[in-house]
Amino acid sequence: MSKKTFSNLIFLLLIPLLCVAGLLFFRDKLYAWLSVGITVLCCAGYFLHFEGKEIKSAQLAIISAMTALSVFGRMCFAFLPGFKPCTALVIITGMYFGRESGFMTGAMTALISNFYFGQGAWTPFQMLVWGLTGYAAGMLAERLKKSRPTLLIFGAVSGPAFSLIMDLWSCIWADNGFVPPRCRKFFVRLYRNDAGILVSFKEFLCKITENWQVRRAQSR
């Protein structure tokens, strides 16, 4: 099946079908059903697109190494809540190995780390959000590589954006809509955690990219 027919199939057939099924069977949890269903379809669409591409074995090996690193990072920094190298590693992969690798690393990090931390309805959402972070980093790669401040700003925006989107999703899931006090509570928690997230970005992004650039210079 070509790429175009597949994406048409998803948008014109599967998503409307999902809506109809939701209206028929899951009217009380309509938003939760739709958000999870559409996210799963989007991820599946991207994976099939990835399958269709010519990809070298080295790139596959590097994607899985980066994924393993960020999964392991999530485990070995578990003693500090909020301090995780995952987003930083996903951004770095997107920057240096292209947008496809970025998306795959992000999505696979969410999927595989949840084998250790507990899967749930949140997995597809985490996959999509981390994947898109990597994709965006791949799209902005030239600018991010050129200037350090841009990289730091990108990291500072994308980390909290991840937790923001996940919190919005948990609001939708819990109440089938938005209930202001719950949203407010999530935002307060977000700002408390922010400090940790930002510090972790600065540390990891700087350290790893520095290492990288030194190594590149050496290998030349």
Binding site: F50, E51, I55, S64, T67, A68, V71, M108, I112
Partner: peptide, 13 residues
């Protein structure tokens, strides 16, 4: 390819 990435990652950890 997806299957390969998943298995390799779970082997790497």
């Amino acid at each position: 390819k997806l299957a390969l990435i998943i298995t390799m990652t779970r082997g790497f950890v």
